[in-house]
Nucleic acid binder design. Sequence first.
DNA 1: ACGTTTTCTGGAAACGTTTCCCAGAACGTA
DNA 2: TACGTTCTGGGAAACGTTTCCAGAAAACGT
Lengths: 345, 345
Amino acid sequence: MQDGERRRSVTMRDVARQAGVGLATVSRVINGKPGVAPELVRRVTETARALGYRHDVTASSLRRADRRTATIALVLEDVANPFSSALHRAVEDAAREEGILVLAGSSDELPERERELIDAFTLRRVDGLIVLPTGSTDEQLAAVRGHGTPIVCVDRLVEIDRVDTVTVDNRDGTWSAVRRLRALGHRRIAFLGDLDSIWTARQRFAGFADAHAEAGRPVEERLVRRGLRSEEAAHAATTRLLTGGEPPTAVFAAQNLLTMGARRALQGLGVQEEVALIGFDDFPVADLLTPGVSVVAQDPATVGRTAARLLLSRVRGGDDHRPARHVVVPTRYVARGSGEIPPRT
Amino acid sequence: MQDGERRRSVTMRDVARQAGVGLATVSRVINGKPGVAPELVRRVTETARALGYRHDVTASSLRRADRRTATIALVLEDVANPFSSALHRAVEDAAREEGILVLAGSSDELPERERELIDAFTLRRVDGLIVLPTGSTDEQLAAVRGHGTPIVCVDRLVEIDRVDTVTVDNRDGTWSAVRRLRALGHRRIAFLGDLDSIWTARQRFAGFADAHAEAGRPVEERLVRRGLRSEEAAHAATTRLLTGGEPPTAVFAAQNLLTMGARRALQGLGVQEEVALIGFDDFPVADLLTPGVSVVAQDPATVGRTAARLLLSRVRGGDDHRPARHVVVPTRYVARGSGEIPPRT
DNA sequence: ACGTTTTCTGGAAACGTTTCCCAGAACGTA
DNA sequence: TACGTTCTGGGAAACGTTTCCAGAAAACGT
């Protein structure tokens, strides 16, 4: 049907022949290497354009000394999650400045899937990897790193030789938020947390515990719900807590989906003005709810940008020998009302 | 510092030598091609594992007859936009089933950037392209398509030979929403729209006009604000409209960010219970606002899944000759309160 | 038992590029 | 003029793989 489709695409050899120069010269011109007479440069450039030559990055990286593919990969929990996608965007922007493209994939918090993704990416010879690690793939990451591929882990701390990390100050952020609740007089504070296998979930709970310890009060285990994986789970757990005996006067939700679930439960019971709520991680239009939802905000863009910078500096080479660097990005408490509700006497 | 890092990675040749077979045989075994004695298969498989052989997808695709790289690319407006990222996720899931990876990039609605992305992707020999097109790159897309790379355009209709599209029923969705407002008695309905260069923006406005035409009423141009590019712009425009003379009794916001901006303006003036609001495209926790924000919901997952299926079937070959197919995904009106407010008489 | 087909195997060419290396030209110096 | 040095350009090898081809061995039919 279409005629021209099956014709071989034009190659450097074609350009060389047409321009009456050697293959090596074309390569030099295309790569902007010095030591070619201006006249030849002009001729080659022109012929290339005339023939519609397109440089084949794949073939090029095969022989190239540094074997760079100008591609990095991003392993996220879910590319559609607001935190992940904001991070993705920041990474993309930093990469673009150097003409680098980004492959992205979602692990869904499954170590198996994470492993597959890392595998698929490295088989394609990506220049570097930014990973939001499930925590069960340290050996694999170490092996990949050992083979030479630079890696930066984001959001969760891991200790692997020459693997940088960029994390958020989870413990401190949580601690100071819960402290505010205590200062308002809250004594029965519920905690909703994600899977315990997740580093951030543990850190946030630790911050929660810190705030209690500081006041010389033990954490009330009956108000703690960990291992919640969805908005629905948070909704159910919150409803249960509030309709039981001695209900909490405040709720701390340690993840954005959980915050939404908790809030939905509060509104379901019509007590959003009476029970305090603070969430970890901001979400869209949290300020438009009544009352607005107070949160411990993270800055995914900064996390992403920092991670990309660390990675790209290693990719560029030169400082890839340096030991791991661990950057911690601070959080910011955003008061919008729901965290400022005093206990109902 | 690290010792093993610079050693050449193990290649098929190494496996062949070690297993005492020919290079061709190793290739056959690795690719699971038939016609190799079971004993040899075992031996090769084993040596490969023992040596830690890793298949190089890049080198492989270079010589391979179909030149497939098992990679597709996704050009979005912004990977961090909720609609885009939901679509991204759906595409990823469909691709994963076939072991295909996804490159993603953000055009920010800039034709120039879109062109660069398409260029960078095709230079890397991706097997196919899913594009949310700005609308100014049809010739380029046609050229790429002409060279053999399958393309599917999403969200916006384009007419290019053998380029499938998956769009949403923008015009109809808008029409029926505005119709509801009219049925409630609204006569002064404002329209907030995105850049006029965007196909969906034009379609939605057309639906808005349809609903007026149907009632034999002309569109009141003074209530129409097009070319709004951000939440802030929508906020400002809405505030202006409502504080002017003969303010609208209802607002239709034709894009998710614009809806948020409009609602923020309404709350700023304290009239969210008095002025009706309907948005096009859903957003997180729209149901938790008081009143809830009624929207014309799209289904980005279906759009993405459909697009991926269309693309992959062409990538697999076999039906790549078939003419373009244009799928339209329906919208769904979600009543949450804000669209059910009657005019304030 | 013999010829013919089929199955299996490995050497070599090819994919499109970069890099190595050497030949000539151009230039400067004695 | 003869000679070293620097510069420019091209042929060929290499990257790691797949595919072509031809030869050897095994299976088959008569």
